[in-house]
Structure formats: C-alpha cells, structure tokens
Amino acid sequence: MTEIISNKLNPYVYPNLDIWHYEIPLYLFLGGLAGGLLILSSGMILFKKESIENKAVRWATLLSPVILSIGMLFLLLDLEFKIHFWRFYTAFIFTSPMSWGAWMLLIFYPFSVMQALIVFKDYINFYPFILKTIKITEPHLQKIAVVNVHIGTGIGVYTGVLLSTFYARPLWNSSVLGFLFLLSGISTAAAVMLIICNSGDKRTFLKVDMYLISLEGFAATLFIIGGVTSAGAFHDAMVYLISGTYAAWFWVLFILCGLIIPLLLETLEVLNKVRYSPLVPLLVIIGSLSLRFIIVNAGQSFSTFY
C-alpha cells in the first residue's frame, strides 16, 4: 500500500492540472471549424471555379476568418497576461506549436480574407485600394485556394497538436489527436455548410459530411486503440476517458450524438428513407464541440504523468 502526502500549494496543477477552462475548448472548436470551412470552401473552388456562386461556399469563405477571430478572442481571454499578447510576435520558437499557430495566423488572415473578398467582390464598391487588390488577385483565385486548403489543414491540425505535444499529459499526448481534431473540424464545417446551403445542394453536403464523419469515427477509433494499447499513464489515461468520469459524456455526446446518430440519419436521408432535418448537422456540431471540452477537461483531470 502506498500513501502519498504532498504539501504542494498550486491550484493550477494540484491535485490535477487545472489551467484551461471554457476558453480553450471553445477556441479549439472554433479554430477547427474555421480551418474546416476554409478547406471545404477553397477545395470546392479548386474543384469547380463556379462554386463561388454557391451559397454555402460563399458563406463558408466569409465565416472562416470571422469564426477564427471569435476563437482568437477566447484565446486572448485565456491569457493571464493579456497585454503581453504581442509577445507572440517577438519570437518564433519552432518547437512550440503555439508559436507556429501564432505565426500561421499571419498567413491565414491575408489569404482567407483575400478569398472572401474575391467571392464577395460584387458587394464591394468602396475603397478603391481594396477594389484594386481584388482586381489584381482575382485571376489567381485558384492559387489562393490552393494555399488556403493548406492553411486550413494547418489550422485544423494545429488545434490538436497544441495539446498533443505535451508529453507530460498522457491523454493528450497522442499523435492521432491532430488528425482527429482536423477531421472533426472539417466534418463540423460540412455540417455548417449543410445548414446554410440551398435545398438543391443538401444531398451533396450530406454525402460530404457522411464521408467526413466516417473518417472522424475512424480517427476516434485509432485514438482510443492507440491509448488503450500503450502503457503506463498513457494507457490509464485512455481507460479513464472511456470508462471514468467523462465516459458518459464521451460515449453519449461525442460518439453517439456526434458520430453514430448523424451518420445513420444522414445515410437514411441520402437514401431518402427520412426527410432532411437541420437537427442532424446540429448534432454533428454539438458532438464536435463536446469532443473539445471532453478532451481538454479529461486530459486535465487525468494529468498525472508517471
């Protein structure tokens, strides 16, 4: 039998890690969604230039930078020394995902905004400078879209990598996490676009979302298997996730409501067995949001590294 008594005074880490609250999961969710929207909209533009006329694509190009900005607001809210925010840009630390993330934003904003401007050029009849810029960049829309697909992917992966580089936190320290969060972000984006799109496009977006949910389910399975089959704290952390305090949330909210039920309903919708309901993409969004909360919280409450 082992009795351990520690007199450490530090509510941030004792008895378990307690540094990130609602802000970071929200930031991770919104970041993933923004990345996903950028990937899907740019991808569709690449696939078919005429997509810029598509309602869902148009909204996605616009929403991506807006949503990321909201996410950034939550990130700022989480900083303990907010007036030092600019310090992210006096250094580039190539081993720090957060540093990468900060600098990636500097590329994200010009390219994603540029794409949105081109898409919405008809509505912009002011600021000659902007008009001129649109004029110059418009012929290169496809190239911009290529860059944006990559940036979107980068942002999406980053939301997971941010957590997964912490070797000290066994639940987070999984290389699958970046992949999982990326796929979850894109499928959420597809769900959002499914809600926005014209009724004629529903079927297309349903198919896209189905495909992405399947991939996400695959990544989630890999994540669980990877954890369960590893040793020590990493094994225990995964067992904690799937059978501990957060197990009900994980299985019901994320796996069932976020993956299985939407996948089932969307399949039935595509097969015209049931009618389309906006509730289905909403479930995907809720599942994706709860995934961030569950992983961030469970990873903190099981933070012991041994």
């Binding site: 004792y14 990130w20 957590l163």
Partner: peptide, 26 residues
C-alpha cells in the same frame, strides 16, 4: 516575465508540475 503571456503551455508541458501562474499573470 517580460516575455510571458500567461498562456500556460509551460504548465501543461511540465511533467513535474513545478510551475504556477503568479497572480500578476506570468
């Protein structure tokens, strides 16, 4: 402390749980 933003990445990264956030923010 002049460079610190209080992002807490270091706290999450430390396997020894040796850090805390000073009430000032660093």
């Amino acid at each position: 402390r002049n460079l610190c933003t209080g992002c807490k990445a270091c706290i999450a990264a430390c396997p020894y749980d040796a850090r805390y956030i000073h009430p000032v923010g660093f």
